Amino acid sequence: MTDSTQPQAQQSPTPDPALARLADLVGTWTIKGRPLGADEDNIRGETTFAWLEGEQETSFFLTQDMEMDYDGQKIRSHELIGYDPKAGTFASLVFSNMAPDPWPYEWDVDGDDITISIHKAPMDATFTGKFAPDRQSFSGGWRPAPGADKAVNAPYDLVATRSG
């Protein structure tokens, strides 16, 4: 017979092992880039990825805090990235000074390859990039989906270098 007056140990959920695929992003990165066809970098910024950890040092979410100057336009954002095991995807919401509502993104990190996409009007673009072998930088570019408004989804390339 169990004594119902004794507190029961609560079983804590454990993070999905797929989250480990995001681990190489953790840290602070300096970003520089340029729109396609530009002769010089006019995109500069910094982004920091960190696990949203609890008391048990477990995390179900990766956060990203970013500040960027895109040719004079200041962009700030906060993002939460999590794993949806039913869909097998890394979904995120980005809260920024550019929109009155959060924007949904989808991530994938598979070996050296990084893919980020957004499909919420007017945004419809995908970032495709690669980590350097030493994992201290990654590079790639954002490209609009076919038929997307290129004025809103301007194609550009970037390099992110680990700075912390």
Score class of each variant (00 low, 15 high):
residue 22 L to N: 00
residue 95 F to V: 14
residue 92 S to F: 04
residue 96 S to C: 03
residue 120 K to W: 06
residue 12 S to Y: 06
residue 45 G to V: 10
residue 4 S to A: 09
residue 114 I to P: 00
residue 159 V to S: 03
residue 107 W to Q: 03
residue 154 A to R: 07
residue 24 D to H: 04
residue 123 M to N: 06
residue 79 E to F: 00
residue 2 T to N: 08
residue 95 F to D: 03
residue 155 P to G: 04
residue 111 G to T: 08
residue 86 K to F: 12
residue 152 V to T: 15
residue 29 W to Q: 01
residue 53 E to T: 15
residue 130 K to D: 05
residue 40 E to G: 11
residue 121 A to L: 12
residue 43 I to D: 02
residue 73 Q to M: 14
residue 137 S to E: 04
residue 71 D to P: 02
residue 10 Q to C: 07
residue 105 Y to F: 15
residue 159 V to D: 01
residue 47 T to C: 09
residue 149 D to W: 09
residue 108 D to T: 14
residue 40 E to Y: 06
residue 51 W to Y: 13
residue 2 T to K: 15
residue 141 G to T: 05
residue 155 P to R: 10
residue 50 A to P: 01
residue 88 G to C: 13
residue 7 P to I: 11
residue 68 M to G: 03
residue 122 P to E: 01
residue 159 V to C: 02
residue 76 R to V: 12
residue 35 P to E: 07
residue 128 T to C: 09
residue 2 T to L: 15
residue 64 Q to W: 02
residue 143 R to L: 12
residue 85 P to G: 05
residue 38 A to Y: 11
residue 10 Q to I: 13
residue 145 A to W: 02
residue 83 Y to N: 01
residue 3 D to F: 05
residue 1 M to S: 12
residue 18 A to P: 04
residue 62 L to D: 02
residue 61 F to K: 07
residue 125 A to S: 15
residue 150 K to P: 09
residue 75 I to H: 04
residue 139 S to H: 10
residue 41 D to R: 12
residue 9 A to P: 06
residue 88 G to N: 13
residue 68 M to N: 05
residue 134 D to G: 03
residue 21 R to A: 02
residue 60 F to V: 05
residue 28 T to K: 04
residue 127 F to N: 14
residue 47 T to Y: 03
residue 39 D to W: 01
residue 163 S to P: 07
residue 20 A to F: 08
residue 142 W to R: 00
residue 116 I to P: 00
residue 42 N to P: 01
residue 98 M to H: 03
residue 153 N to D: 06
residue 39 D to E: 15
residue 36 L to S: 13
residue 15 P to N: 11
residue 58 T to A: 06
residue 106 E to N: 08
residue 68 M to S: 07
residue 54 G to M: 13
residue 71 D to I: 04
residue 137 S to G: 06
residue 39 D to V: 14
residue 132 A to C: 09
residue 106 E to G: 10
residue 38 A to W: 10
residue 164 G to T: 08
residue 156 Y to D: 00
residue 39 D to P: 11
residue 108 D to Y: 05
residue 39 D to K: 15
residue 82 G to A: 10
residue 87 A to E: 15
residue 77 S to K: 00
residue 152 V to N: 13
residue 2 T to W: 14
residue 108 D to A: 15
residue 79 E to R: 01
residue 100 P to H: 03
residue 30 T to A: 15
residue 149 D to Q: 13
residue 16 D to G: 12
residue 46 E to C: 08
residue 42 N to D: 14
residue 84 D to G: 09
residue 76 R to F: 13
residue 71 D to V: 06
residue 54 G to V: 11
residue 118 I to E: 00
residue 109 V to G: 00
residue 109 V to M: 01
residue 114 I to E: 00
residue 76 R to M: 14
